[in-house]
Design a protein around this nucleic acid. Structure first.
Lengths: 115, 115
DNA sequence: TCACATACTTAGTATTGCTAAGCACATGAT
DNA sequence: ATCATGTGCTTAGCAATACTAAGTATGTGA
């Protein structure tokens, strides 16, 4: 049942990924969902019910800030999130942690001692 | 707060790691904890309260089988877990999933489009 | 005797991704 | 005109899992 493991693998990682996308430029939620699907296909696809709580947590931790757009013409109002300075610092540390962690996992999984 | 993210990164991965260790040879719980700490340091350190439920889940899913050791002399009885054939199949699929997933995450995190 | 390591178990908590539903608006097809 | 679809945000409740913390039992060394 790969779906089960796939779901678990996402835990914790989605938060880093979202922060990374926001480090490029301010974005709104719906766009983040689309970009994640573009970059990771099914592996990173997620529903609104997953993303928005992540954004709320990031904002609560002051890693991002939000601002409603002033809709021009017929546009729907969008809530734009941008990364904060402390968000950038945190992203650096999280990236280092990810590199160390994923490297260690890969080493164990591919370290063939089983003859 | 790196501890928080570290905890989340482990989710789902610990199960694969435990299965991988058992693919080498039959092992008992306490030994698995020690080997994980050896191989991943703090990143993989886990408490009994985390490991044993993982083993029970793996057994419930029939990916591993357990057998109590016949204690020789003064030894404490130990419960040995060994991987099953379907456990080996699952491990292969989980490893492929991990490689694809971790590769995709690393690509996003290190893809410098932020100028 | 008392602390510690080994070895397994389990109850309860927090985090987080999920489903599912809802609201509001715009657009295109029937 | 109505109805489905896409955009865009919100929220309640569920399930999985790593955690803390405590318990049981044995053996060893100070």
């Amino acid at each position: 049942m790969n779906l089960k493991y796939e779901k678990q693998l996402k835990k914790g990682v989605l938060e880093i990924l979202v922060l990374r996308l926001l480090a490029e430029e301010a974005k709104y939620g719906y766009l983040i969902i689309q970009e994640l699907r573009e970059r990771g296909g099914d592996l990173f696809s997620l529903k609104e019910g997953t993303l928005y709580p992540i954004l709320y947590r990031l904002e609560e931790d002051q890693l991002v800030e939000s601002q409603w757009s002033a809709p021009k013409g017929k546009e729907t109002a969008r809530k734009y999130y941008k990364i904060t300075p402390s968000g950038r610092q945190e992203l650096i540390q999280m990236t280092e942690l990810w590199d160390a962690f994923s490297g260690a996992v890969t080493t164990v999984l591919h370290n063939d001692q089983s003859k």
